[in-house]
Amino acid sequence: MLAFARRCTKEILRDPATIFFGLGFPLILLLLLSTLQKNIPTPLFEINDLAPGICVFGLSFFSLFAATLVAKDRESAFLQRLYTTPLTAADFILGYTLPLLPLALLQSLLCLLASVPLGLSVGVNTLFALISIFPIALLHISLGLLCGSMLNAKQVGGICGALLTNLTAWLSGIWFDLSLIGGLFEKIATALPFYHAVELAKTLQHGNYEAVALHLLSPIFSAFLITGLSIFCFLRQMQRL
């Protein structure tokens, strides 16, 4: 499994899109919105709220990374070749998932570090906020595995690269207060885990521990659900050859 995981790490890190969207883009957004906040102050883009939000938004690109890798491996018959080796289904699933988890944490860590000069309060709460992204990171990686198992590389670009990143952005309450729209939109957004993941990281950053329980369950439950579903779909495509 480690051999396959090492290979996946190399494939991901050697793709320039990973470096740009994984590390560069969230940092650019952070700087742009901080500058905007300086000129037109708004509570939503206050750095202690903005930084956790950008961390969670940045993770949506990990669905794209995972999905593209799996879809390309399937298309190129590379996976087919590996299915004829002694590697097991668990080796494949862990091999795709494990390299992306530390990369997701690294992305969030860099985002938080870049926020320090912009005024982010740093302390043990920041560490908790960083740890809290784990379930939503797993959720995004599993979504990638799920899409990569069912779609081709071109479709993955559309679904994960455009649709999913936009859904995460609009429905997470990072860019605007969801109550401003209200109604069905707000109900859908609060039913999904993205909003809760952002609020969880924000509440932890603010040290508002009593609100943690409100937002903890949705990302964890969704991560388990989507991980289970992605394993099911991956195994199905393995048997469909």
Binding site: L2, A3, F4, R6, R7, K10, E11, R14, D15, K72, S76, A77, F78, Q80, R81, L82, T85, P86, L87
Partner: peptide, 23 residues
């Protein structure tokens, strides 16, 4: 396989080593 089945971002040597590691 009929289609070339390689890890594209890995060197030829890394591809070969990968298969050795798997075995």
């Amino acid at each position: 396989p009929q289609e070339t089945a390689l890890a594209p971002n890995l060197s030829v040597q890394e591809n070969l080593c990968l298969l050795c590691d798997i075995h």
